[in-house]
């Protein structure tokens, strides 16, 4: 790393540290229950050397999300992404502050099978505090932090960082720690995603969310395969139909990020045609293989 890169890295880390602290102060001022997950909030024991964080990740008690949104808007944050467009799991929305950088506001942890309210209660019930930027921030218990890292690795398409995370958090853990984490997996009903991270996913072929995790843990999943997996894992017919329609809709948030400006109508039409053509090609090539 050059001196300039190091300086930029340091500035980014200071910014993230301050963002954790400021967001916690906002939560305290509005009585919002929120847990700082991953990144700088991660216990040093769970960080492999060289693991860097790029933003603040916050898991918020679902009924408190509206209050936090209002607080963020009043304090210079702008929403840049929505639950429905953020990821296949629709779990987080994105916020940006000119000085403090990025915040991902999570309403659930992908892979946890408990309803979001119950899951939050379970994480909140065994939380602890860690000081970040001289502010006491609420964080999940050490075992819950390990589980959250592993579940994140399970949907990272087997990238380098996720492989290091699994190695560091799971494979080097002692038997007692692994047993405690497995117990937590059971409590949170996170068996399928957990298996996608640490191995044994094929034992869950019969589960509706198997394909979703297969796709998200594998490095070379095609887009239509991901949407088929989401539709299959989705519980009701109405929800399945809605997902099928949305799979071809253009993600305005994503397009805005790519273009660096508000997408025009022409941009949206072009992107829609691109998706349609891509989906057709993927389906055609699958038929060609079968």
């Amino acid at each position: 790393m050059t001196q300039t890169e190091w300086a930029e890295h340091e500035v980014a880390q200071v910014r993230i540290e301050l963002a954790h602290g400021v967001v916690q102060l906002l939560c305290d001022s509005r009585r919002i229950d929120a847990l700082h997950i991953k990144g700088l909030a991660l216990d040093p024991e769970l960080r492999h050397p060289g693991r860097v964080s790029m933003d603040v990740d916050l898991l918020v008690r679902p009924p408190h999300i509206a209050t936090l949104r209002a607080a963020l808007s009043e304090h210079g944050w702008q929403q840049t992404g929505h639950f429905s467009t953020g990821s296949p799991f629709e779990h987080a929305e994105n916020w940006h502050h000119e000085t403090l950088g990025h915040l991902d506001l999570h309403r659930l942890i992908p892979g946890v099978g408990l309803p979001p309210d119950e899951a939050f209660d379970a994480f909140w019930g065994c939380r602890s505090q860690t000081p970040i930027a001289q502010v006491d921030c609420a964080v999940p218990s050490l075992d819950a932090q390990a589980l959250i890292v592993l579940l994140h690795a399970a949907r990272s398409h087997g990238d380098h960082r996720s492989r290091l995370d699994v190695e560091h958090v799971w494979r080097t853990a002692d038997v007692t720690t692994q047993r405690r984490i497995r117990d937590l997996v059971g409590t949170m009903k996170a068996e399928v995603a957990f298996a996608a991270a640490v191995g044994g996913l094929e034992d869950f072929r019969h589960r509706p969310d198997y394909l979703l995790w297969k796709v998200n843990s594998s490095p070379d999943a095609a887009r239509t395969t991901e949407w088929r997996a989401r539709i299959k894992a989705s519980p009701g017919i109405r929800s399945k139909a809605s997902l099928a329609v949305r799979s071809l809709q253009v993600n305005r948030d994503h397009l805005r990020t790519l273009r660096g400006r508000e997408p025009s109508r022409a941009d949206m039409v072009r992107e829609f045609m691109r998706r349609l053509s891509l989906a057709t090609r993927e389906i055609t090539s699958r038929r060609g293989r079968s």
Binding site: V14, L18, A19, L25, L26, W77, A133
Partner: peptide
């Protein structure tokens, strides 16, 4: 108590709720 404070070497970075940093 309404500020977040980070330190690097001999510098102190202080952020207020609106995100302005001193």
């Amino acid at each position: 108590a309404q500020v977040a404070v980070a330190r690097r070497d001999d510098r102190v970075f202080i952020a207020q709720l609106l995100g302005n940093v001193v």
